[in-house]
Write a protein that binds this DNA or RNA. Structure first.
Length: 274
DNA sequence: ACAATTACCTGTATGC
DNA sequence: TGCATACAGGTAATTG
């Protein structure tokens, strides 16, 4: 599922394909995926604009456009944004096609249709529902142990649920949350505020290492994720605990366990994570 | 203020 | 083979 490293990889693979390209025409095959404005206005306002650059904020992809507009995309679980040369047939579940001048296209494909697209003036991007309350970027140099400590202070919720709360930290999903807690040797069920200074510092280091490794491996492809060129990542080959229930812990050999935490499956080593 | 639950969707795996 | 069911999980809305 597209979490921070996957969206970052999509941003990096799409940027050279899309920069300075002109959107000639936009076809919406499933209006439900357009969050705002209404699909007709969405298509009309996009046609003729130049893509000036791409950005990422949490799990959101921002496509900057001429005329001070911005296309905002959230892929949720199964969404894909793929650059396609020429007139290849549409993949199943293709909901929006952005035809670029000269023949190529950018296609939004999403089997479960959870993903959403917004078109907004640049000035209102920060005020969109999902972006307004987004927490800090965990890979920002300013996100140090002190910043993490301030986020955890006073919170009795399990540490994993805090890591998944986009209002507190941006971009972490179920896979990377499990991996970073294993890397830090911390039990995902621990109340967030129960971590001592040393554990907070360790977790912060693990968060950055695990996310950087995900990016270096071009994302985790378990089911649906592919980058902007349609290629799979390789980070699934490096997962230590996610999806490995019952297999030996890579550190101590104890069988890995799975529990449900806040409705989400949570993978951990009962011996290494305390 | 916080926590738990449900809705949104469909493909895949499993059990009978 | 066919059918029912569980499960995957990001976010918003709802309920407690």
């Amino acid at each position: 599922m597209p979490e921070l490293p996957e969206v970052e990889t999509i941003k990096r693979t799409l940027t050279p394909c899309l920069r300075e390209q002109k959107i000639a025409r936009v076809e919406v095959y499933h209006p439900g995926v357009i969050a705002a404005p209404d699909p007709e206005t969405f298509s009309r306002l996009l046609a003729g604009r130049i893509i000036t650059g791409l950005d990422r904020r949490g799990k959101y992809l921002l496509v900057h456009l001429s005329g001070e507009y911005c296309l905002v995309v959230h892929l949720r679980m199964t969404g894909r944004l793929v650059f396609t040369e020429g007139a290849a047939p549409l993949a199943p579940h293709t909901h929006v096609v952005f035809s670029l001048a000269g023949g190529p296209s950018l296609r939004f494909v999403d089997t479960r249709r959870f993903g959403r697209l917004y078109l907004a003036a640049k000035t209102e991007v920060e005020t969109l529902p999902g972006l307004r309350d987004l927490g800090p970027e965990p890979l920002d140099p300013a996100f140090d142990a002190l910043a993490l400590a301030a986020i955890l202070a006073g919170r009795r919720r399990p540490i994993k649920q805090v890591l998944l709360d986009q209002r507190l930290v941006a971009g972490i999903g179920n896979i990377y949350a499990d991996e970073m807690l294993f890397a830090a040797g911390i039990d995902p069920r621990r109340p967030a505020a129960s971590l001592n200074h040393e554990e907070v510092a360790r977790l912060r280091g693990a968060m950055q290492r695990v996310l950087e490794q995900g990016i270096a491996n071009r994302g985790t492809s378990i089911r649906d994720y592919v980058d902007g060129s349609g290629r799979q990542g390789s980070n699934q080959e490096h997962l230590q605990v996610y999806g490995r229930t019952g297999r030996p812990c890579p550190r101590c050999g104890q069988p890995l366990e799975r529990v449900r935490l806040g409705g989400r499956s949570t993978h951990f080593c009962p011996r290494c994570q305390v």
